[in-house]
Design a protein around this nucleic acid. Structure first.
Lengths: 262, 262
DNA sequence: CAGTGGTCTAGACCACGCT
DNA sequence: GCGTGGTCTAGACCACTGG
């Protein structure tokens, strides 16, 4: 083992792997290893620090866990680079409605993205399915009832950024523009067009690790946490008419609410 | 290697460690290994499955990463149990204010916890420090200026649940109840008492992995993502008078916003 | 084809928990 | 003092990437 790694080994409660990770992290944060740049290979680090490959792998594992680097078998490790997008799921100014209002429909997101000088796009498809229990509970549909599912994958500059799946009771959606697949824009919003303008909504935000399916759809690097944003929308009669489940990778988003009391 | 582990090794793209993790996970999800129960020791699993200890450690590492189990050196692995707490950082009904209003002060949280039949408590201390840049930017204080920091660790049933650190410009806080350490309750709220009632706020929510310090203060199991909730509060003059940074472990919370348009 | 990360084996020593 | 998890070593084979 290299002497510089050995010296502090006894006095501190830090492992060799920790200290190698610290050095690599310092190089990344100082800009010496810029975003996109390749790191030394595992076997090079073995030679540099005179330690075992398992130890080097543990060091790199720490940085992968922190989301600083990614690995690709056959190629190597490189520094990650992701720009944060500000997402405004609900913005209210002075009791008036501004950006993503209950009425505004789905282009509020596209407008937000464009306002940040980036290019939005969406993959949309529509199907009829049995909803997960979380959704059935919130839509108050009987057990086993089918609902309309409008699946969206939202991209920014061609990179997947969000999964936004909307669930509607069949009587609300059928025969309305909601059933139209593709990235369509309806003035006034989908819900108003369906005769159920949204008057109130309730947002729940959970923080968790992604499922395998989400990792695949969003092309997530390992160990990136996601937000699960569940919006239940209600019509004038107080009936829940839509549930939107949005999966928001933590490395690409900042969620913003603006609220005013007068 | 045990034959049952070897059989599927070639046909599927799953590792031995994956399959041992799958078996352990199935036992946890079926309730065969209930919350709080101990898992077999690493060396027992080595004997059971006839594989190397490193492989067993990788299996257990998968479950630790998923947040299903915790490890304790000298003792063993056990199944985790954590109840979710609903947190309402901003709840507005019919344009009126309900729970945590800009005016209501810090006991809104305690009230929410109590409403869920659980017992809140807080550790509070106050100091004067140079704020992190994220806070200085939002308070619009000159570089290097000192601010008042009110540090809170919020506990539920004696278990750490949130870190809530509030930052105030010195002229706003000094000579007011804000400077009082300990878990005090001020009717009408701290900000109103200081002569700066909050009229508007802006919430930013980021999702990330915790820092080492947060892991320690919140006693987090490995690989638990957190939400970083930053609230900037403004007074009538539109001046930012408070920044609250709340660290919310994902395994203990669901964040809820309720918004109404009429 | 040479090099890379991913996985696995078979040992070892340490600090810490429990009893 | 025995068993536990935490760390480290020194090998090995595989699938994949890239020139």
């Amino acid at each position: 083992m290299a002497p510089d790694l050995m010296e502090t080994h006894v006095e501190r409660r830090t492992t060799i792997a920790d200290r190698i990770a610290d050095m690599l992290r310092a190089d990344i944060e100082s800009g010496k290893t810029p975003p996109g740049a390749a790191l030394p290979s595992e076997r090079e680090l073995v030679a540099i620090h005179n330690v075992n490959r398992g130890t080097v792998r543990r060091s790199l594992g720490i940085l992968v866990t922190e989301g600083l680097i990614t690995s690709q078998a056959g190629s190597g490790y490189c520094v990650r680079a992701n720009k944060l997008l500000d997402w405004y799921p609900g913005t209210f100014e002075h009791l008036g409605l501004r950006r993503d209002t209950p009425e505004a429909g789905s282009d509020a997101w596209a407008a937000d993205v464009a306002a940040q000088d980036r290019t939005p796009s969406q993959d949309v498809d529509v199907s009829i399915e049995t909803p997960p229990r979380l959704v059935a509970d919130r839509l108050q549909t009987p057990d086993g009832d089918l609902v309309v599912l409008r699946r969206r994958l939202r991209l920014v500059d061609g990179v997947p950024y969000q999964i936004a799946d909307s669930y509607y009771p069949r009587d609300v959606a059928e025969g309305t523009p909601i059933m139209t697949p593709g990235d369509t824009t309806i003035p006034g919003g989908l819900m108003a067009a369906a005769g159920h303008p949204q008057i109130r909504f309730r947002d729940e935000i959970g923080i968790r690790m992604p499922t395998h399916g989400e990792v695949y759809r969003l092309d997530l690097p390992a160990v990136t946490p996601v937000g699960e944003h569940v919006r239940v929308g209600y019509n004038r009669a107080g009936r829940p008419v839509r549930v939107i489940v949005t999966i928001v990778p933590g490395d690409r988003h900042r969620i913003i609410y603006e609220v005013s009391a007068e």
